[in-house]
Simulated assay, not measured.
Amino acid sequence: MSLVINHNMMAMNASRNLNASYGSLATSTRRLSSGLRVGTAADDAAGLAIRELMRSEISSIHQGVRNANDAISMIQTADGALQVIDEKLVRMKELAMQAATGTYNSDQRLIIDSEYQAMASEVSRIANSTDFNGIYLLNGNLSGQISDHEGTVLAPSGPIKIHFGTGNDSSEDYYYIAIQTATASGLGLGHAAGTKVAADGSALSFAQANAGKTVSTQGMAQTAMDAINQAIISKDKIRANLGSLQNRLENTITNLQIQAENLQAAESRISDVDVATEMTEFVRQQILTQSAVAMLAQANSLPRMAMQLIGG
């Protein structure tokens, strides 16, 4: 290499190496300070795209867990109200038993019936007022087969859709929760209960057709006991269905949490920096940077040798 003044090639080479080492040192500093191996698209374009997809899945799964927990809270609200209704039904059966015996007269049965009707009214009040976040649970609004609880109407009705999956195209992504009515009339009790008909279409006696409406007579009280038993069975079916759904949702939450944990581990392997490896690279680039600075200083002093030949 010739000794020249206009172009100091050694200094240019040292400067280029310094820029490269300093840039790598800055990258290592950014990774170590942020904890991320992939901080920009330039770090790993494919890895960044995969990571962002994983992050969206993880966020969706976490929201699915919250949705499922909200559904469990809703089920527990309904079950708590049904537990109180159960107490009222037990008292109604006790009153029917009391009125069914012949040791009471008509006036006394009317007094018993007064409490019986009060219990029926309280059952209806509880069923009509039990709500979760503005959704009424026991008034029959969530019963039926076709669900409008999918955001298509302003006043939805039918089974409520609990969405916890990351998609919306299969039954694995959601459950439908249907809750039958638990009002007194829906259970066939009290003055508001409808007239009963035989399953085979045969004629029923007056007491049988109006079973459960009142206990004001001994005969009506006797038939009311069967109606109350059926009401208790209907109520228990609702609670059993809610309990099984709660168990399913709890299992779903466990599965979603495991799924989110494994996705988080995969995302971490793509995104997070290996501190030990990156620290080794940081030290290497630091040494190269210091060496390049030292060599650049030496290279910048080389043109002075030309001045000695000129006689300066």
Rank of each mutant, 00 (worst) to 15 (best):
V38S: 00
L36P: 06
L53P: 00
I61E: 07
R55C: 01
S28G: 03
L25Q: 13
T27D: 15
R31N: 13
Q63V: 05
T77C: 06
N67M: 03
G23C: 06
N67K: 05
A42D: 14
S33I: 11
S34M: 06
G35T: 12
D44Y: 05
A26P: 07
R55E: 14
L53Q: 14
A46R: 09
E52D: 15
A14L: 09
D70Q: 06
A68C: 11
A46E: 03
S73W: 01
N13I: 12
A71G: 06
D43S: 08
I58F: 12
M74I: 03
A41T: 11
L48A: 13
A46K: 08
L25E: 08
G35M: 13
T40N: 07
N19Y: 04
A68V: 02
Q63R: 13
S15T: 10
L25N: 10
A49Q: 11
G64F: 04
N69E: 14
A45Y: 08
A71R: 02
S28W: 03
A26D: 14
I75T: 00
M74L: 08
S28V: 04
I61P: 11
M54Y: 11
S60A: 15
E52Y: 01
N67D: 04
G35H: 09
D43A: 11
S59W: 07
I58H: 09
G47Y: 02
G47T: 01
